[in-house]
């Protein structure tokens, strides 16, 4: 116990010393004289590195000086105009804390019994910023290959709920979710249009790579037990996506 206390106080002292040195180093720095080029300043005034406005003369000594000393009083009845104070410049927007949205490509096979059934779809969806609880909704629409005729149209909405590893690994976030989907398949059989409900339940694993701010891309693989007009399907659903 005593040794632990000793280590604790030693660490505390080291931290304090580091802070003191850092403060001292900052105090030793010469006063900031760097000038932001006037063209870059929002109000046209030269600014020091800390953002405070500098006198014009300090910004460019060759420029003709202007001052109010040589100007006369404004005519009677004319009120002098004052410049409105500009809002403080914002250096950096805070990271977006709202829902994330994704655009993706989805592929799975809804076999037709004759060698066709591949579905290629475009997906759009997103999930809520609920930390380790991943809660989202994805819609996808695409075409299903039918081996004996023209393709079918497939529309699906998928609700996802599960766990995501926020902060588990730098830049990469794995997740595991349960998925529940419903949709419709519309097509033609023997020159007659049909529309059948497509329902499914399953589990999906995936990951996101988050290189900068909220931009992310990733991939997922889901196994879904689906029902289409009373027929059962075991679907392996691959999804590639990019989002913000």
């Amino acid at each position: 116990m005593r040794a632990a206390n000793c280590h604790y106080f030693a660490a505390l002292a080291l931290s304090g010393l580091t802070l003191l040195l850092a403060s001292a180093a900052r105090a030793d720095e010469p006063a900031a004289t760097a000038i932001v080029p006037p063209a870059l300043a929002r109000d046209g005034a030269a600014r020091a590195a800390d953002g405070t406005a500098l006198p014009i003369a300090a910004a460019d000594s060759d420029a003709p000086s202007e001052s109010a000393a040589g100007l006369g009083e404004p005519p009677a009845g004319v009120a002098p105009r004052r410049a409105e104070p500009l809002p403080a410049p914002v250096d950096d927007d805070p990271p977006w804390a709202g829902p994330r949205v994704e655009l993706g490509y989805t592929h799975y096979s809804l076999g037709d019994g004759f060698g066709g059934g591949a579905v290629h779809a475009v997906s759009f969806g997103g999930y809520l910023p609920t930390r380790q609880l991943r809660l989202g909704l994805i819609g996808d629409g695409g075409a299903r290959d039918y081996a004996l005729g023209g393709g079918d149209a497939v529309l699906r909405a998928t609700l996802v709920a599960g766990w995501q590893g926020v902060g588990l690994v730098d830049y990469v976030m794995p997740y595991v979710v349960a998925v529940a989907s419903c949709g419709v398949v519309v097509g033609q059989r023997f020159a007659t249009t049909f529309a059948d409900a497509l329902l499914g339940l399953g589990v999906e694993i995936g990951f996101e790579v988050n290189p900068v701010r909220t931009l992310h891309f990733g991939a997922s693989l889901a196994h879904v037990r689906a029902d289409l007009d009373g027929l059962g399907y075991g679907l392996w659903v691959l999804r590639l996506f990019v989002g913000l």
Binding site: W163, L201, V203, H223, R225, D227
Partner: peptide, 30 residues
Amino acid sequence: ASFLFCCVALPLGIAPSAGCGEDGSAPYAG
């Protein structure tokens, strides 16, 4: 706990109960 719930409980609990009909990928299914 949430990982186990998502990886084990949900698939075991709900997935087998869905799509229990005849295999739709079989020739002449339906």
